[in-house]
Amino acid sequence: MELLQNLLTTFNFIVQGLWVTISVTAVALTVGLAIGLVMAVARVYGHPALQMAVSAYSVVVRAVPVIVIIFILFFVISRYVNLSPFWAGALALGFASGAYQTEIFRGALQAVQPGQMIAARAIGMSRLQAIQSIVLPQALRLALPAWGNEATLVLKDSTLVFAVGVPEILRRAQQVSARTFEPFLAFGVALLLYLALTLITTQALQWLERRYRLQV
């Protein structure tokens, strides 16, 4: 009975971090998606100088631990722009995810058969139209499995935003553990919450994959 009571109290406290974790992940994934799409198109179809700039972004950001990017964004950039810890953490995570998503979409764009672009141009589409209407829709479908994997990684990386003081699931578990000296209970609840989030995310993405699978 006492265990159940403890479990309930612990759960109620930690679950308040759920919304923070979901928001941080959603913002980061959206920002990363926007960055990744634009960068990947620039990387594959852009001017050579642009391609090089994108490569540099991708290489540098992927070489640096995400936590470092979070610190830089929070402590350096926010000297000039007033960013709350939430936005600094979420944007930094998105900035980092953008580099990985750039690579995912670059690979997908390059996997679309060249004939698709040629056929689109042959019916009078401009390059931009062909990319928008023909190549990107196919690339997005090809990218979906890898993107789903990235989504679960970003979900887990969202624990890092506590470094700048955003109280997400893991930090709340630490706080409970420090107060109650029952780490198994606290981190067990955190584990279950992450597991549930990951399962829901992967199920949703698998549904999308089935729905939009490319018939080849």
Partner: peptide, 20 residues
């Protein structure tokens, strides 16, 4: 050139239908 291509239809050996 895009306007020119509108007036010229082209059919390819490999069809190149838009797969999606």
């Amino acid at each position: 050139q895009d306007r020119v291509r509108q007036r010229i239809g082209m059919v390819f050996q490999e069809f190149n239908l838009f797969t999606h």
